[in-house]
């Protein structure tokens, strides 16, 4: 049961990390690439931490990993935020999906 949970979380970590990398290659502009890389790999790393905590059981190691997780909860989004904020202050315009014009758009004019 516990082994199974550990394997599930490690598998989730692998999937999220892989998909984050695929997202970096596919997405069009800095903001969306940042979304794919930073946030998905945050979930991957936290999945690894949860797997470690389940494997270690109730002990001192779990407490230490918990503190590391809390630090990671603070440090990772701050890093992503700094990159995004720098891009925003530099005036990089976010990519936007273009909508195809249809005949309905001209009815109200």
């Amino acid at each position: 049961m516990i082994e199974g949970l550990v394997y599930i979380f490690l598998f989730l970590a692998a999937v999220f990390n892989l998909m984050g990398l695929v997202g970096i290659l596919l997405f069009p502009d800095p903001y969306t690439r940042l979304q794919a890389s930073s946030t998905c790999s945050t979930t991957a790393v936290i999945s690894v931490f949860i797997a470690v905590m389940i494997e270690a059981g109730f002990s001192a190691i779990t407490g230490k990993v918990l503190v590391i997780t809390l630090f990671f909860f603070v440090s990772s989004p701050v890093g992503a935020h700094i990159i995004a904020r720098y891009a925003w202050n530099m005036g990089i315009v976010p990519w936007r999906k273009l909508r195809k014009l249809s005949s309905k758009d001209f009815l109200h004019d």
């Binding site: 979304q35 979930t43 990772s76 935020h81 995004a84």
Partner: peptide, 15 residues
């Protein structure tokens, strides 16, 4: 709050 918004995948707080 801003940190949690950034931590949630799909949203990044810019400012």
């Amino acid at each position: 709050l801003a940190t949690s918004i950034t931590l949630t995948p799909g949203t990044i707080a810019l400012e």
